[in-house]
Design a protein around this nucleic acid. Structure first.
Lengths: 146, 146
DNA sequence: GTTTATGCAAATTCTTTGCAATACT
DNA sequence: AGTATTGCAAAGAATTTGCATAAAC
């Protein structure tokens, strides 16, 4: 699905900023910060960008990832069905990896977390967010080459 | 170990603010924000509090938890030994639960995350942070009672 | 033509820095 | 006495709000 179709489907007007921001996400393999976007789309107003991001969050076009340092990153939603904990005792959610070498954060799909049974008996868990830190496959290859 | 012993062991001078902040953490079951602390210790300077927290982080007395909304929380370190991924293919780390009802965040010790083997072959994972959101045991009990 | 989004200025909030006065050992 | 910490003021960064202009439908 392309940029314009996606915006229409979300019930949003097709403005230049929205088209540019959505395109940036579609082209990017990594999660983008407000700052990353500001640089990609030069001449874009900071405030408009804040508002665009919050609109996209509302419409569920993107999701927000909070880095271990507290910075906000954004990436496209893949709309994988979210399995209910009660049914599976296992949460099928996606995690993110922040690479300490290249500093990029990417979504890792299909990461399953098993919740210990005794926890489930005590509390009701609705969401799990997992943030991995380490070295991504690209950087491991590059380091070996040097 | 009490407040004064802990501070001395960390090589820190015993000042009023440090004693009060450390005591607040020792008395609290939940993770505290900068704001929570400011209210607990009234008449405490904001800046001193920032510096105290960052000193405690350096000395590994407390750890920092980033909430799903990006806010920073702090809690005492329990100093559990951290198992290496390479040895176990399983990361023994502690997670945090933020309760949507009472808004409190607590440490959950002994939460094990199993990392899928194919991920371990591609990337080197050094740290895992897990944030659960849901309803804590206290609030489940309270809701049933009403 | 009506509604919605943008862009600028300004306000707010969060955090850091500099430095003289104070407290700790 | 000598060094580290505090408290204030002020700077800097990140985010939000208000409102008139401009763009989308």
């Amino acid at each position: 699905m392309n940029v314009e179709e996606t915006l229409k489907k979300a019930g949003l007007r097709l403005t230049n900023t929205r088209k540019a921001v959505l395109a940036a996400f579609m082209e990017s393999q990594k999660a983008l910060s407000h700052n990353d976007l500001e640089q990609k789309l030069n001449n874009c107003d900071k405030v408009t960008l804040y508002r665009t991001l919050s609109t996209f969050l509302e419409k569920d076009l993107i999701h927000k990832i909070i880095n271990p340092d507290g910075a906000a990153l954004f990436a496209l939603c893949k709309h994988e069905p979210m399995h209910s904990l009660k049914e599976h005792y296992q949460l099928h959610n996606h995690a993110h990896l922040t690479c300490k070498v290249c500093k990029e954060t990417r979504c890792i799909n299909d990461f399953e977390v098993e919740i210990p049974k005794y926890l489930l008996m005590n509390m009701q868990i609705e969401e799990v967010s997992i943030l991995l830190q380490g070295t991504c496959s690209n950087c491991i290859k590059t380091e070996n080459r040097v």
